[in-house]
């Protein structure tokens, strides 16, 4: 009995370890190649760590390539999107959480529908709509598109956070002399700060990762986001692996930071927006 229990525990830990190794290995390899000097890259092949590490790829990427621009563009796009979405979604999520109104059912249905159809359907029409407005090849255009795409999911997420706050608190504030909007701003929003942080994180990560619309809407280097820049780089100079992977590691950093921020809310986020990845 005792040995079999011990064996079971060992098997359990080994299985967890296997998952961790599989989850981290690709990222480790990215890091490894990014610090391998070019002259060792082919000769040392599948070695787990180069005999000599270097930061020259990072230096090159930061000092002599367009990646800092891509990085900056992505930061602007993802940051603005996250802020815009969070504001819109807080308002809409509050309406869904606290009011009973005739169109509520239809609004929820509308938002669910936007999560169901293939977004790739919209690539062509959105391009046609934005180009006469001068919003193609512009960060503003991307922010508008990303904001719209992320609002439905973020609304459900914020709604679930608002649902967790007792209605009594607003009622108490309204009796204390607040209007509903003042109660929302002064009482409910401060209590939803963790939810707001989680929404910011989710949306930032989504906007940071978006590829297809950025590829379609952006053509020049000036307005390229990180995914577009990296992909263009890959297809043009697909030999300089060290630099590409250094750039990849740099692209990973903000995403991982936000992941740490939202990790506690993953479950709530995924159940609220089980529709989205």
């Amino acid at each position: 009995m005792r040995t079999s229990k011990l064996l079971l525990t060992v098997a359990h830990r080994l299985a967890i370890l296997a998952y961790i190794v599989v989850a981290l290995f690709p990222l480790f390899w990215l890091l490894k190649v990014s610090v391998t000097p070019n002259d060792l890259l082919y000769s040392e092949g599948v070695r787990m760590w180069p005999s000599r590490a270097t930061f020259e790829h990072y230096e090159f990427v930061i000092a002599h390539s367009a990646f800092p621009t891509f990085f900056k563009n992505s930061l602007i796009v993802a940051g603005s999107t996250a802020i815009a979405v969070t504001i819109l979604a807080s308002l809409a999520g509050y309406a869904l959480s606290r009011f009973n109104f005739r169109a509520k059912y239809w609004i929820v249905a509308l938002m669910l529908i936007t999560q169901m159809f293939p977004l790739v359907m919209l690539v062509a029409p959105i391009f046609k709509m934005l180009s006469p407005l001068g919003l193609t090849n512009s960060l503003t255009g991307l922010v508008i598109v990303y904001t719209a795409f992320n609002v439905p999911f973020a609304t459900f997420l914020m709604q679930s956070f608002f649902d967790g706050i007792p209605k009594d608190l607003e009622e108490a504030a309204m009796i204390d002399g607040a209007t509903q909007f003042v109660a929302f701003r002064q009482i409910i929003l401060p209590l939803t700060l963790p939810g707001i942080a989680a929404t910011l994180g989710f949306v930032f990560t989504a906007a940071w990762s978006e590829l297809l619309f950025a590829l379609m809407l952006i053509s020049g280097n000036d307005a390229a986001t990180f995914p577009v820049g990296l992909l263009t780089f890959v297809s043009k100079f697909s030999v300089d692996f060290g630099q590409m992977m250094a750039a990849g590691i740099l692209a990973l950093i903000p995403a991982c930071l936000f992941f740490l921020l939202i990790q506690r809310y993953l479950v709530q986020g995924l159940t609220a927006g089980a529709v989205k990845g």
């Binding site: 009594d168 009622e171 504030a173 009796i175 209590l191």
Partner: peptide
Amino acid sequence: IAMVFQSYALYPH
């Protein structure tokens, strides 16, 4: 008017 709630409804922050 003032009201005392069953849950007290104190503002946690």
